[in-house]
Design a binder for these strands. Structure first.
Ligand SMILES: [Zn+2]
Ligand SMILES: [Zn+2]
Ligand SMILES: [Zn+2]
Ligand SMILES: [Zn+2]
Lengths: 179, 179
DNA sequence: TCATTGGTGTAATGTTATAACAGAACCGGC
DNA sequence: GCCGGTTCTGTTATAACATTACACCAATGA
C-alpha cells in the first residue's frame, strides 16, 4: 500500500502529499514535529505538551481540522479541554507559522515550511476534505502589483480554492462509468 | 495583467467606489436595487420585502455586513427578526449572485455585476472595513491552470486580500508625519 | 376547490470563538 | 535555595455566527 517503488523521493512529503495516498505519512508528522521543536528552540519559545499535541493532531491527516474536533481529541487524551485551551495553542502555532487557518472552513492545517516567511494558497477537495498548500510565488507578486494599481497595499492574502482532488476525480470517473 | 481599458465609466460606481469617498453612493444603492429587481423579474423569482430590504441594507455602505448586524437593522424596521429570516434572505440573494460572502470576515457584500457569471476577488481594508470587488479575469485562468498541473479541478475560488486602502494609507501617512 | 409550492414565523439548538480572572509553572537574579 | 516577574494553564461564562425542525400562510395552477 504505502510502497514507493520507482521514486527516489527521500522526503516523501515534499511533493504533493495530500493528494498522494502512497506517501509515508508518518514522515510528514514526525518531520513537522521536529521542525517545530527546532524552530521553538531557536526562538526561545516553549512547545509545551498541549501545543505539541495540538500540532500532532492537526498533522495526523492532511485534512484541515476544526478547533472543536481538536478539543474532543485532547479530552480523549486526558488533557484539559475547554475552548480557550485549544485556541491558545492554535494562536501560538499560528504566530510561529506552524499552522494556517482556512477561513472558508473555519479549520486549521499544518504548514510544512514554517521557517520561510511565505504566502501560500490552498487547494481544498470538497469530496475528501484534503488540503494542499502551494507556494504562492508569482501569484503574490501579481496580486500585489494589481492591488497597488488601485492604491491598495496588501498585508495578508487568503486564497482558498475548492474543488476535486486527483484521487476523488478518479473515483468519480469510475462511478460515472458504472451508470 | 489585469487591464481594463474600457474606462468609459458614466456610472460612478463602476470605478473603485469603495475607496473613493467622493462618489454618489445613492446611485450605487438604487442601481443595485434596480438590477436586482430586473434580474428577479426575468428569472420569475420574487424579490420580497425582506429580501429587498436586506439587499438595501447591505448596499448602504461598501463595508461587508454581518448577518446579525443586518438582523438588528431589520428589527429596527419592524420586520420579523430571528436568524432564519436573515439567513434565508441572504441565501436567496447569494443564489442569484446579488451578494458575495466574505469568508474571512463572516460577512456579506453586494455584487454589482450579478448577471455576469464571474469569479471576483476582494480587497478589504483592515482599517476602515471597506471592501472592493475586482473582476478576476486572468487570475482565475492562472489559478485553474496551475491547479490542473497538480491534477486538481477548481470549482470555487475564495480570494480575499486584506490590507490598507488608499484613503486609510493617506491618513496613516498624516499621522506618521505628526510624530 | 383543493393540492402543491414557496415563503415566513418561531423556538430551540448547534458551532465557532473570546473575555475575564484566578492560579500554577517557569526562569533569571540573588 | 528563595523571590518576583512573566508566561502558561484552568475555569466559567458569554459572544458571535449559523442551522434544524415544524407550524402556518399565501400565491399558483390544475
Ligand atoms: Zn503526509
Ligand atoms: Zn479528494
Ligand atoms: Zn457606492
Ligand atoms: Zn480603509
Amino acid at each position: 500500500m504505502i510502497e514507493n517503488n520507482d521514486t527516489s523521493a527521500q522526503d516523501s512529503c515534499d511533493e504533493n502529499p495530500a493528494f498522494n495516498n502512497r506517501h509515508n505519512h508518518q514522515d510528514c508528522i514526525s518531520s513537522a514535529l521536529d521542525k517545530a521543536q527546532a524552530l521553538c528552540r531557536t526562538r526561545n519559545s516553549r512547545l509545551t505538551p498541549v501545543r505539541k499535541r495540538v500540532l500532532e493532531l492537526i498533522w495526523q491527516s492532511h485534512k484541515p481540522l476544526g478547533a472543536y474536533q481538536i478539543l474532543s481529541q485532547l479530552a480523549a487524551d486526558g488533557f484539559n479541554s475547554a475552548p480557550p485551551t485549544v485556541y491558545r495553542a492554535l494562536d501560538f502555532l499560528l504566530e510561529h507559522g506552524l499552522l494556517h487557518r482556512i477561513a472558508s472552513l473555519n479549520a486549521f492545517i499544518g504548514c510544512n515550511n514554517p521557517n520561510h516567511n511565505h504566502h501560500g494558497y490552498f487547494l481544498i477537495c470538497r469530496s475528501c476534505g484534503s488540503a494542499q498548500e502551494i507556494e504562492a510565488g508569482n501569484l503574490s507578486t501579481y496580486l500585489r502589483k494589481n492591488a497597488s494599481a488601485a492604491g491598495f497595499v496588501i498585508e495578508s492574502e487568503t486564497v482558498e480554492l475548492s474543488g476535486l482532488c486527483p484521487l476523488c476525480l478518479e473515483q468519480q470517473g469510475h462511478s460515472q462509468s458504472d451508470k
